[in-house]
Design a protein around this nucleic acid. Structure first.
Lengths: 151, 151
DNA sequence: ATAAAACTGTTTTATATCAAACTATAAGTA
DNA sequence: TACTTATAGTTTGATATAAAACAGTTTTAT
């Protein structure tokens, strides 16, 4: 089955990459116009995640699995985000290996600006896919990611 | 429309990124066992593209649009690929701005090994999505990419 | 014919990314 | 308790990536 090379996931790998790329550009082009720092999409995702999980304890290792980036990349990015004042990284007493991530006021402010930017830009995607297609696409992306991560 | 944040394309951005990431790991883990250099997925895509377009003239700028990477990244990657002996970059007389890309014998050899690796790994994706889902996914990825690139 | 605009590729600077080797801490086991 | 294994994070070295400034070439417009 699936002899046609055009029907292989591998053959569209670079198109998946391209979608990601376009998203990142479009998404943040407008963020710059709003008085906040120019931040990367990854910083935006992490800030959003920390905002949504304010009540819970979030450690560096959680970022690693949530966003599928290597441990060393996590260190790099979070260090930079701390330097820029979006987060703080606090050592905890119960386990000296862990570093707990705290969203600063500045980080929370950027989060609220970003929500607006995201809403503005979402209409771009809506114009390309129908409602039904978008739902299907999101479903399949989640299914594929979930399936691949335990394999 | 589309008030539910879980139904926004943005909300799955990091999952798209993760799929790409997993693909790259899985795809190349086995390539190492076959006596060829350990190459990146992007190198694999470019080598495959040059192989498929042996008869046509391919320039650096074509790589830029085909794979949605910036001009400076194209310079970097192709320089490295030339250094590793996979390709050559030839200045053409008709237009002194252009550099034509030629796949070397070594590059062609890597291509044939890679085809087998890709076939081996494609079964992973097949086990996650049904045939119908895979077709739909590929269709939507292409539609989304095409729609986003002219916007 | 010449000045302006567009195109192709490079360099520089900053960030992102991974793998591998490393440090320190915690948990499990003999 | 002492040895071993597992876990969390850091550092290093290599590659990937983009934006911006740049240089050379070609095309367009006047």
């Amino acid at each position: 089955m699936c002899e046609d090379p055009d029907l292989k996931i591998y053959s569209i790998g670079h198109e998946i990459k391209a979608i990601n790329h376009v998203m990142q550009r479009k998404m943040l082009a407008s963020a710059t116009d709003k008085g906040v720092d120019k931040i990367t999409v990854m910083h935006g995702w992490i800030i959003g995640y920390l905002f949504e999980n304010k009540d819970k304890d979030v450690y560096q290792k959680d970022i690693e699995s949530k966003f599928a980036i290597s441990r060393s990349t996590v260190t790099n990015i979070l260090k930079l985000m701390e330097k820029k004042g979006y987060i703080r990284r606090i050592s905890v007493e119960s386990d000296a290996r862990l570093k707990k991530l705290i969203l600063t006021d500045k980080g929370a402010e950027i989060n609220s600006v970003l929500r607006q930017t995201i809403a503005d830009n979402e209409t771009r995607f809506n114009s390309v896919l129908t409602d039904e297609e978008r739902k299907t696409f999101i479903y399949l992306v989640r299914k594929l990611r979930k399936g691949l991560e335990n394999g």
